[in-house]
Every structure is written in C-alpha cells, then in structure tokens.
C-alpha cells in the first residue's frame, strides 16, 4: 500500500483552478519531490493532504486514512512544515520545541534521540528567540518541531526557499537521515536543481501534474539534443538563436543559453560558425545533457 495516495484531486478558489485532476502515489520510505514554479498549486495540494483544506473533487489517503473523513487520525500521525516560517518568533528555540512537543502529547526528552542530530546544531542557541535566528537555523528549528512527535509521514512545503546554498545542502543531508529512519516525505520546491536530490518527483504546472518519475528517468525522456551556447552580447544572441534554422527552443540559463536542436538540420560547428558570422563575440557552443529544468520547460511548452 502506498503511504500517500492522491486520486484525481481538484480544488478551485473562485474562478481560479488551483488543482486539476492531480493524482500521484508516494511509496513508504521515499523522498518524493513536487517540483513546480510559484503558483503551480503545490501549497494547495499540501494543505489538502495535511487536512487543512477539503478537495472539491477526488480523494486522498495517507497511510490508508482519508484526508476528509479521518482527519483527526491523520493529524496525530503526520509532521507538517509550512512554506512560511511558522513558529513563535517571540518564544525561544527551546520554548518553541517544548510547546510543539506537548501539543502532540509528548515531550522533547522522550523523543530527543529522534531529533538529536538536527537539534544539536541549534542547541547552542536554545535561549535565543526564534525571530532572531538566521534563515537556515529557522528551517532547522521548524524541522525539529515537525519531527518532535515522531511522525511517520512528513510534509515539507518549500523547506529550502530563502536558505543559502550551504544550508540547503545541510538540510538535504538531514532529510536523507530522516528517510533512513523510515519516515516517508513529500517535499515541494521551486528549485529545479533540488529535483535530482529526491527519489521520485512529479512536475506540476498550473495545477496539473505534467510528468512523474525518477529524476534520471525524466531526464532520459528528454526528446531533443541540447546545446549550451554563450556569447556576447547575450540578449540579442538569445533573440538571434530563436530564429536560427534547426533550433526548436531556446531558454536563458544564467550565463548560458540552452538550445534544443534538431540534429538533422544543425550541429555545434555549424551553429558556432553561423553565430560568429552574425557578429557575436566570444561564442562557445557545446553539447550538454538535459537537466530537470530543461525537461520542465519542454513539458510546460507542450502543455500549453
């Protein structure tokens, strides 16, 4: 039996359809990623799963319990870390943790082992008010609070948004250790590069799941060859690339443009020559392998 089973869930806010026939299933002990841009419907889906919202249509079950009918049972079994920092800013680290432990009918001492590894990192600041912690520290405290009652399923809504790269890496290492203790996790993130850190992922766009699979599987399904192109000046280069023969799609990726091409009509050498002829400076064209973000762009384009 899957730990989380979502079956054609729909939810609208007035005229806006936030979720449209969303189905997915999360197996016990995996880290499942829900990847999509802001406004894709990730938070709405989370709120339905943690029993804070009722779906308009469709059903969802967590460990076999229905999120609407058995909401009380579910509430005592899950851990939830909302997207925004939602602890008491005027309470200290220790007071926050104590409070959430007692709310779930347990104590920090009883479950110290469960959170020891994470808590050890913020314990030096135990008497500091939560509002005065750094972004990464806040996330660690929130994770501790969500874990302190030994939930079997953990819902993490954008846990790494607004956290620096080092802390993010730290945070993911913690998630792996939590997974190894047998906890199933659903994690949402707008960062495509975090997708490959999950066991399995679903890409979500405008309330619809557009692809599901392992990160490697999704990347493998990418249908085109991909070139990374850089050159000066960058923006006219992007515009020029879009009307080159053989170029299917072109997106800007930081310092480089990712160009999906039809291999029958162009090649790296050919493209390089064309661009240099057109007057662009420092042109580099290289073949690259697709990332999750390339897949997302491709699928989102198809979807429209």
């Amino acid at each position: 039996m899957a730990t989380i089973e979502i079956d054609r869930v729909c939810k609208s806010y007035g005229a806006v359809q936030a979720l449209n026939e969303v189905s997915l299933s999360v197996e016990p002990g995996e880290i499942y990623g829900l990847i999509g841009p802001d406004g894709a419907g990730k938070t709405t889906l989370f709120r339905i799963l943690v029993t804070l919202l009722v779906p308009d249509r469709g059903s969802a079950r967590i460990e076999g319990y229905d999120v609407v009918r058995d909401y009380r049972t579910i509430r005592s079994r899950i851990g939830y870390m909302p997207g925004r920092f939602s602890l008491y800013q005027d309470l200290t680290v220790a007071e926050n943790l104590d409070f959430f432990a007692t709310m779930f009918g347990t104590s920090v001492a009883e479950n110290y082992e469960n959170i020891r590894e994470i808590y050890a990192q913020i314990e030096p600041f135990r008497d500091r008010r939560a509002g005065k912690l750094s972004g990464g520290m806040k996330q660690k405290l929130a994770l501790c609070c969500a874990l302190v009652h030994r939930p079997t399923v953990l819902f993490l809504d954008e846990p790494t948004t607004g956290v620096d790269a080092v802390s993010r890496k730290d945070f993911w290492n913690m998630l792996y250790r939590i997974r190894d203790a047998g906890v199933t996790m659903l994690v949402s993130t707008p960062y495509m590069d975090e997708a490959s850190l999950c066991d399995r992922i679903s890409l979500i766009q405008k309330g619809r799941i557009i692809e599901t699979g392992t990160p490697a599987g999704i990347v493998a399904k990418y249908p085109h060859r991909l070139f990374g192109v850089s050159g000066m000046p960058a923006y006219p280069l992007l515009k020029y690339l879009r009307q080159c023969p053989g170029v299917l799609r072109c997106f800007s990726f930081g310092s480089e443009h990712h160009v999906a091409v039809d291999p029958a009509r162009t090649s790296t050498e050919h493209l390089q020559a064309t661009l240099e002829q057109a007057g662009f400076r420092q042109v580099v064209v290289r073949e690259i392998s697709a990332s999750i973000e390339d897949c997302f762009m491709e699928l989102a384009k198809e979807d429209q």
Binding site: R47, V50, T51, L52, R72, R75, S76, I78, Y80, P82, R84, F85, S86, L87, Y88, Q89, F100, M103, F104, G105, C145
Partner: peptide, 13 residues
C-alpha cells in the same frame, strides 16, 4: 497571520 494557526490546527489539539 503568522501561519502558526496552520500548525495548531494540524496538531491533535
């Protein structure tokens, strides 16, 4: 406003 109500509601209280 602070979002803590979400956590309180999700708890068994």
């Amino acid at each position: 406003e602070n979002g803590t109500m979400e956590l309180l509601l999700v708890s068994p209280v």
